[in-house]
Amino acid sequence: MGASEALKPAPRIAVSGLGKIFPGVTPVTALDNIQLEIGQNEFVTLVGASGCGKSTLLRIIGGLEYHSSGTLAASGRPIEGPGADRAMVFQHYSLYPWLTVRENIRFSRRLKAHRQQLTESDVERASGRADSLLELMGLSAMAQAWPSQLSGGMQQRVAIARALMSRPEVLLMDEPFGALDAQTREVMHDLILHVFKLEKPTIVFVTHDVEEAIYLGQRVVLMAPRPGRIDTIYDVPFGSDRRQDLKHSREFVELKREIVERIRQTAGMRTDTDLLARLSGGE
C-alpha cells in the first residue's frame, strides 16, 4: 500500500460486494453484488424501478436490516446495526404524536440527557440547536403544536429537523417527500439543499422521481431489479447553486430523459401496442 493511499480518508459509506437475500418459500435476491462508495458531504440519490432494492440498500446502510454477503462500513468502521451517526428520515408515521414539535426535535437530546442523568434545565440550556433547527425549517410558530396538527410537508420538516438534531454524519432518506404535493415538494427540495450546504451532512436519498433525483443529487445511482443491482451511476454536471428553473434547462431535461428511458429498459416492462390492445379489449 502506497503512502498516498494510506492518507486517503475512508469514504463515509463503503459498500462492497453486498448481497441481500430475503429467505422464504421463494427466496428473493433483493440485492446482488452492490459496489458503492459515498464520500464525505456527498449527496447521492438512488432511483430505479419499483422493487429494485433501493429501500433495502438504504435500510442496510442504516443498520436496520442485515446483509447476506459482502462488506459495508461507515467511516471505515463496519456497520453492525443502527447508530446515531446515521439518522434516517422515513416517508410516514415516524414522528412521536405524544410529543410536541419541539420535543420531537429534541428527542435524541433527551435520550442523551437520560443517560447522563442530566436535569431538565440542562437539557433546556442545551436546546439552542433545537430552536435554530425550528427556525431553519420555518417551524418556530408551530413549536408547541402536536404533529397531528401539522400538514404533511410540515411533518416531514419536523422529521428532518429531528434527524439533524444530533449532527449525524449521514442522513438517510427513503422517499421523504413521496406523499407530498408538487408545490410543497419544490419548497422541500430547496430547503434540503440549503440544509445540505449549511450542515454539511452526507445524504443518501431514495426516490422514484427522476427530476427530484437530478435536482438534489451530485450523483444519481440507477438501480435495476431482479436481482437488485446497480445499473448506472450518473454524475450530475450542475454545481451546488441550484434553482428551480434549472429543471427547464436543456441539459437537465436531456439527462432526465436518458435516466427515465434507462429505468424503463431495466424495468423490463412491455409497452407494445399489441398487449395494450388485448388489455383494453377486455379478454
Binding site: 443498520g63 447508530g83 446515521r86 434516517m88 408515521y93 414522528l95 434527524a163
Partner: peptide, 12 residues
C-alpha cells in the same frame, strides 16, 4: 408503528 421504533434506533 415500526417507523417510530426505527427512527429511535437511528437516533441511537
Amino acid at each position: 408503528p415500526t417507523a417510530q421504533i426505527e427512527a429511535a434506533q437511528t437516533m441511537g
